[in-house]
Amino acid sequence: MENEKKGTAIVVTSGKGGVGKTTTSANIGTGLAMQGYSVVVLDADIGLRNLDVVMGLENRIVYDIVDVVEKNCKLKQALIKDKRHEHLYLLPAAQTKDKTAVSSAQMVELVNELKKEFDYIIIDSPAGIEQGFQYSIAGADEAIIVTTPEVSAVRDADRVIGILEANEIYQPRLIVNRIRQDMVKRGDMMNIEDILDILAVRLLGVVPDDENVVISTNKGEPVVMDEKALSGKAYRNIVRRIIGEEVELLNLEESNQGKFSKMMKLLFGR
C-alpha cells in the first residue's frame, strides 16, 4: 500500500478508576481531530464500554473490538465515524464479553493495523493493572497518565508508571485532572509541584474541576469543543502539546469562581 501512515499509539491510563481516563481519551481524540489529524479512539475497557456514550456515538455501534480480533467483521466495519469530525473514529469495546476476549498479541496486531490508517490511536485503558490493562498498553508507543490531586490516585499513578517502565514504555506524561484552585490556595489540595515532586514525570497538562465536563458528557459532546469552558481550553492546550507545540500552563484562577469572587477580583485585584 502506498501512502501508508505511521501513526502514534498513545494509551491513556491511571491505575485508579474514576479519575477521568475516558473523558480524557474522548477529549484528546476529538481535540486532535479538530487540529486536522486523523484519529481513532479505541475503547479497551471490555465489559464496561463507556467511550461511546462520552462521545455521543452509542447508537451507532454494530461491531466491536472483539468482533474485529475474532474476525467476525473487517476492521473498517467496526470503526464508527464521529458525527462532528471528518477524520475521527471510535473503535468500541465489547459490552457482553470479558477481558479475556483479547490478548496482548492480538492488540499489538490491531494497533499496528490502525497505525497504517491514522495519525493517532488513542487507547482508553481500563482501570486496574490486570489483564485488561496489560493488553491495553501492549500496542502503545507512548502513555498518558491521568491522576487527580488525591493520595489514592497519585499512589496508583506511581504504580502504573513503574509497570509501564517494566513494559518499556518510558517517560509517560501526566495530566492532573479535577484540580480545584480554591482548595490548592487553602493548602487543602496538593498542587502541581507537589504531585510532580512525588511522581517525577513530565507534565502534559492540568484540567480544572469544571462542571462543564459533566454538562458536556450529559450531551455526549466532549468539552474540548466548548470554546467558553476553561476545561475545554485545558484540553485544547493538552492537544497542542501532544502535537509538539509549546503552550504555557493554563491560568486556573478563572475556574470555579462565583460572581462574588470575580467581583472581589475586580475590586481588589486579588
Binding site: D158, R159, V184, R186, D188, D194, I198
Partner: peptide
C-alpha cells in the same frame, strides 16, 4: 500543618514501600 502537606508526606512514605 496544611492537609496537603500531610497528604504529600504520607504519599512519600507509602511509595517507598510500593516502589
Amino acid at each position: 500543618e496544611k492537609s496537603k502537606d500531610v497528604a504529600k508526606e504520607r504519599l512519600k512514605l507509602v511509595l517507598v514501600h510500593d516502589r
